[in-house]
Simulated scan of single mutants.
Amino acid sequence: MSLLAEIREKASQKGRNIVLPEGTEERTLQAIKPIVDQKIAHPILLGDESEIKGVASKIGADITGAEIINPAKAPFYDDFVQAFYEMRKKKGIDLDKAKATMLDPLFFASMMVKMNKADGEVAGAENTTGNVLRPALQIIKTAPGISAVSGSFIIIVPNCEFGHNGIFVFADCAVTPNPTAEQLAEFAKTSVATAVDLCGMDDPKIGMLSFSTKGSASHELVDKMAQATAIAKERFPELKVDGEFQVDAALVPKVGSSKAPGSPVAGECNILIFPDLNAGNIGYKIAQRLAKAEAIGPILQGIAKPVNDLSRGCSVEDIVNVVAMTAVRA
């Protein structure tokens, strides 16, 4: 069974409610049938019911089994308005602005997750990452002890002897352009949950990447990764993490033992933390294109409850898979 099939199977055992705020987006509507048929989740579409059903009929999408909620007519709309006002009044939000904001499906969806009306949220088929993240960070906020959100990719490399049977988690590849050492340490922590929950890794080992291994080069960029490693070890002593590592020292046992003797993870890493978004994004796409790796993501990490962002170029299958991952994490 493939990893994605395993994730769908795990999701089917949970029975989670996942809200999809882009209720008239065509690929989202086409994804409803496989989500329902495979019992991946109970999908909730946001928007005007007649408009959603009209679009579904026009494109031949079967949305049987999906719940439809119109934010303007929802019985808990007023409660959401009041809750948002209380959250944001110190930021200058008045009740009128709160009422208008709660009509925005992305904000309404995040409030549904916050108020336990849904277990998770999936959006981004027609919205930017920024638009998806903004309400999530204002309403749901980051997880306790975490200050920054990251976007990881599950990388599955065929016929690969490294990592977790060729499976890796790469982060951050999607969100934070130039993270601090403190944030990089947090990315290590939140990536472990992704590796365990979604990849089934029973022994996650984290490599903090650089162009240097254990001081082989001297530069402020190297210093940042060394500092990030030290912070991760101090703040999260349960993690198996080390660095700074060049990629070969992180992945290849012979190289790891030579360049970083005595390290508990060198040559055995299955989670790779990149120094910035340039490196992370380039790294996962090189693996995808040159090693023919399957790249699953981005998976948003660090939010207090599961919210995931889709690519605007996503397929129906992508939406189904991201809903499954969100359900598993819920």
Rank of each mutant, 00 (worst) to 15 (best):
N70M: 04
L29P: 01
V247R: 02
I40T: 11
V323H: 02
I32E: 13
I59R: 12
D48N: 15
T64S: 15
A330G: 05
E238N: 09
G130M: 14
E67V: 08
F80R: 08
P158W: 08
R16V: 12
A188D: 02
K91H: 05
G283D: 11
D79F: 10
E67N: 03
M102V: 01
I18Q: 04
P179C: 14
D276H: 06
A291M: 09
D94T: 02
R88N: 07
D202A: 13
I32S: 02
V157Y: 06
I299S: 14
A260E: 06
A74E: 09
A143D: 09
A98I: 10
N281S: 03
S12A: 15
A61G: 12
K205A: 02
H42L: 02
A171D: 15
A287V: 00
D48I: 09
K205E: 05
L137M: 15
G283S: 05
I319R: 02
A295Q: 00
L133C: 03
L209H: 04
G200L: 00
G215E: 00
Q288I: 01
A260R: 06
T64K: 15
A72D: 05
E220H: 03
P253H: 04
S152M: 00
R329F: 11
L137F: 13
Q38E: 15
D197A: 12
D248M: 08
A195E: 12
A72C: 10
K117F: 09
K254N: 00
D119R: 07
N17R: 14
T64R: 10
V122D: 10
P275Y: 11
S311K: 01
L310P: 01
I32C: 01
S57D: 10
V113W: 06
F84T: 05
G54T: 12
E67Q: 07
K259F: 00
I139F: 08
L221G: 00
K39D: 02
S210Y: 09
G151F: 03
I93A: 00
G200Q: 09
E22N: 02
S2H: 04
D202E: 14
G243Y: 06
K33N: 10
A279P: 01
N321A: 13
R8K: 15
L103P: 00
P135S: 12
R134E: 00
S2Y: 09
T24Q: 07
L251Q: 04
S315Q: 06
A148R: 12
P144S: 07
